[in-house]
Design a protein around this nucleic acid. Structure first.
Length: 224
DNA sequence: ACCCAGGGTCATA
DNA sequence: TATGACCATGGG
């Protein structure tokens, strides 16, 4: 069906113009730090997750080998500010164990994208979003990240019904976008920023750059 | 005092 | 398939 106005690929240009480059994961020069951040930020503010990463770095254990050598209770204590610390400590341990089996992080991240994604998903505590975040921001592979902000945005725009699977939404972006990890990394960051700023559970549509094309915003106006 | 945050797992029906 | 309980800290 035809619809006027912007489409999936246009989100990139609209948001980049509205918000500018997000420069996510500054420290992406250290892939392991990115992986740890991706795990610690699950359902948690980046402030809290970042605190956990910093504590690990200050303790000198921000490597797969050092994490494996830590007592679980010590690891839990270091990442406590990130919340869900028992589950996340177990996830970190499991990841590091898998990395060791692969002969190191660089070897592990050098696996083909589909293989690496399956390997990540087989680890307890790593689901589709975390796996794709690792693929994009640590491995530099174009596997689009779909998070709660992405779903909420698409639902409010009226571009999805809400019952679509993760894979369906990811496939829609993959079809619309060039297969460029830089674009994937930037767009996900932009959608997240947009979500935090405007497309919140309690929406703030007044100055949203999408307000003129958002069906949700139109309904809000009708109600008011 | 509530709501929310850059999810995932497991039990249940 | 789909809904709910649970995990837990910290800021608004």
């Amino acid at each position: 069906m035809n619809r006027e106005g912007p489409d999936w690929a246009d989100l990139y240009d609209i948001f980049l113009h509205a918000y500018g480059p997000q420069n996510w994961w500054p420290g992406h020069e250290n892939p392991f730090e990115v992986v740890v951040g991706a795990i610690l930020t699950q359902r948690t503010t980046w402030t809290n997750a970042s605190s956990g990463v910093a504590r690990l770095r200050e303790a000198g254990v921000l490597t797969p080998e050092a994490i494996q050598g830590l007592e679980t209770t010590n690891l839990e204590d270091l990442i406590r500010p990130a919340g869900f610390y028992r589950a996340k400590a177990a996830t970190l341990k499991g990841f590091c164990e898998r990395v060791e089996k692969a002969g190191g992080l660089s070897q592990f991240l050098a696996l083909p994208m589909n293989v690496l994604r399956s390997e990540l998903l087989s680890l307890r505590g790593i689901g589709e979003e975390t796996a794709d975040a690792i693929l994009v921001y640590a491995a530099g592979m174009p596997s689009f990240v779909v998070d709660a902000y992405t779903r909420r945005l698409l639902e409010r725009l009226g571009w999805i019904l809400g019952s679509e699977t993760y894979g369906e939404i990811q496939a829609a972006f993959s079809s619309a976008l060039p297969s460029d990890v830089v674009v994937y990394a930037e767009l996900h960051a932009l959608i997240t920023h947009h979500g935090k700023t405007y497309c919140r559970p309690r929406p703030k549509c007044e100055f949203c750059p999408m307000v003129t094309v958002c069906s949700f915003a139109k309904n809000q106006e009708v109600q008011q």
